[in-house]
Design a protein around this nucleic acid. Structure first.
Lengths: 193, 193
DNA sequence: TCGCCTCCTCTACATCTGTAGTAGAACACT
DNA sequence: AGTGTTCTACTACAGATGTAGAGGAGGCGA
């Protein structure tokens, strides 16, 4: 049975890779089979409908991200703004380099979720996870209005990532570090209302 | 002849609507015909291949955005940060309400451009347009490093928009206005290096 | 060894899609 | 009016796709 789960994960991983490479249009059972190196019909057997395949893919995506988020949740109650900026820069850097594929798939699925409620609930959960984390971190860093600034920060970082991932702008760690530092500094020593 | 251009624009508009409603997967010649209220085969006649249809769609998108950008370029050399924030808030508000459809299509095409160089060049041009404008506006507002902060600001605003457009977060003008004000304030009175 | 059951692969099939050819309508010009 | 030309719409067709069922390989218990 553990093999079946592994097989399902492998298929979901192949779906992520296919999604990143060929987009939503290229995501077919047959393409996933090929990417996974499995016999034709395999993904169609494990996920009988395309909808089921998509749901498994978002869930896999959420699980992968969870592995990244979990270690961070247990941070100290107080945090220097510089350390927070460094942490965020690391996350962004990872996203636009090693995990580029995963995030491309996430953007594809985010758009698809516009039309599929079942995907939306999973993605909303994942988004909330990030936002709660950001609020906690900004609170620990002494932000002026973390409940608003947390979600904003997540959205801004995602925008910067999107730009680096789909745009031409090549990634520049120094500039990114400075930009993120500015964002966090604005939240921490922001103009109080 | 002017009719032919109008017809092409109408088809491209229908393609944008189709893209927003059904995604890249739902963008077929037949679906565009139906959305445009034209006879089957019309879009296939004007844009023989799907690639041609996609190219026309991004170009139409760029033209529509240009109508929005052009009036702003002739702004005064000096600008108060508050006025800039107000301007940007207006643009974002427009994007997430009336122009939601258009921006959904833009995100779809941005992802597709990952795989199609012909789309990429047009979208890159459009992105540059926005970035140059942002640099000019931030310069006029007295930002500390407009060449970096301009593109950053565009990316951040796009991230906020993406969140409002595909996410659950319902749009809140007051909060958005405050967030954008903070972003601009950070750029203007930012920590000098 | 035999029979059974689970898991997987292969195959079938109806439908959809991209693309291009063909025929007719509208129009301009003589 | 007649004729040629351009524009538009319909149709054809090969290939891809979603989905599901049939068949077999391989293990497990008796």
């Amino acid at each position: 049975m553990t093999t079946a789960i592994a097989r399902r994960d492998a298929i979901a991983d192949a779906a992520i890779a296919t999604l990143a490479r060929d987009g939503m249009r290229g995501l077919t059972h047959r393409a996933v089979d090929k990417t996974a190196g499995l016999a034709e019909g395999s993904s169609s057997y494990y996920f009988r409908t395309r909808q089921a395949l998509l749901e498994a893919t978002v869930q896999r995506l959420a699980a992968l991200d969870e592995d990244l988020i979990a270690p961070i949740t247990g941070l100290p109650a107080r945090l220097r703004a510089e350390d927070l900026a460094e942490l965020m820069t690391g996350i962004v850097e990872l996203a636009v380099t090693e995990q580029r594929e995963r995030h491309l798939a996430r953007y594809e699925l985010a758009l698809e979720a516009t039309r599929r409620p079942e995907l939306r609930t999973t993605l909303i959960g994942l988004g909330k996870r990030y936002r709660v984390l950001a609020v906690a971190l900004l609170t620990a860093a002494g932000a002026t209005d973390p409940d608003r600034q947390g979600p904003d920060l997540v959205a801004c970082l995602d925008g910067l990532m999107f730009d680096s991932i789909v745009g031409v702008r090549e990634y520049d760690r120094i500039a990114t570090r400075r930009s993120i530092g500015e964002l966090i500094a604005a939240a921490v020593s922001g103009t109080p209302d």
